[in-house]
C-alpha cells in the first residue's frame, strides 16, 4: 500500500464509490420490466397483498403454459375456461426478484387454506374463490389435475415456481400449485 502513489489511491477510491452508486441506481434508469400492461381483468389476494393485472397466454413452443410478459402481472391460460366458468381456470405468475423488486407471486408460498382469492372481470364483477389445497409438483409431472376437472364445479388454480434454483436446468426444481374453489 505504501508504494502506491497518493493520486492512484484517490482515483481507486472514487472509482469504487462510483461503482457502488452505479449498482444501486442503475435499475432506476434501465427500462423497467415491472411495468404492468393495461388489462380489464384483475387478480387479488388481499391477505398476502397481491393485486395484479391479468394477461392472456396459451402455450410456449415446448408445450408448457406460457408466462406473463411483465413481472408484476399474472397470466390466464386462455385454452382453458375463464375464471368463474365451470372447470379449472389456471393463472400463473413469476416468483423471485429482479433489481431488488419481488415478482408478483414471490410470496405466494405464504398462502394458506381458507384464504380468499378474488378475480374481477372486465365488467367489474368479482368472483370469489377459497383456497382448498396447496401442493408442489415436479416441473415435468402430469399436470392434468391442475388444468382439468370433471366434477362440474368452478375452480381456479394458481401456479408459480418454488424450491432451489437449478443452474443446469435454468429453472427452479419445483412448481407450487394453489387449488381453490368458487365460493358458494
Amino acid at each position: 500500500m505504501k508504494s502506491v502513489p497518493n493520486r492512484i489511491l484517490l482515483l481507486l477510491s472514487l472509482l469504487g464509490f462510483a461503482s457502488a452508486l452505479t449498482i444501486v441506481f442503475y435499475p432506476l434508469f434501465k427500462k423497467p420490466i415491472h411495468t404492468s400492461v393495461a388489462s380489464s381483468m384483475r387478480l387479488k389476494i388481499p391477505r398476502i397483498g397481491i393485486d395484479a393485472a391479468v394477461e392472456s397466454v396459451g402455450t410456449s413452443p415446448d408445450g408448457a403454459m406460457d408466462v406473463p410478459q411483465n413481472l408484476d402481472d399474472v397470466a390466464w391460460f386462455n385454452l382453458g375456461p375463464r375464471p368463474g366458468a365451470v372447470g379449472s381456470a389456471v393463472i400463473d405468475g413469476h416468483s423471485g426478484w429482479s433489481h431488488g423488486i419481488p415478482a408478483v407471486f414471490d410470496n405466494l408460498y405464504t398462502i394458506q387454506k381458507g384464504d380468499t382469492i378474488l378475480v374481477q372481470d372486465q365488467n367489474g364483477i368479482t368472483t370469489t374463490f377459497v383456497v382448498r389445497d396447496v401442493k408442489t409438483y415436479d416441473p415435468k409431472a402430469n399436470a392434468s389435475a391442475v388444468f382439468t376437472s370433471s366434477d362440474g364445479k368452478t375452480h381456479l388454480n394458481l401456479i408459480t415456481c418454488t424450491g432451489p434454483w437449478s443452474a443446469i436446468q435454468k429453472t427452479h426444481v419445483s412448481r407450487l400449485v394453489v387449488f381453490s374453489d368458487m365460493e358458494k
Partner: peptide
C-alpha cells in the same frame, strides 16, 4: 381442455 406442462415462472437468484 388441453393439458400443458407446468410453466417456468422462476427468476434466477
Amino acid at each position: 381442455v388441453p393439458v400443458a406442462t407446468l410453466p417456468n415462472t422462476g427468476l434466477p437468484p
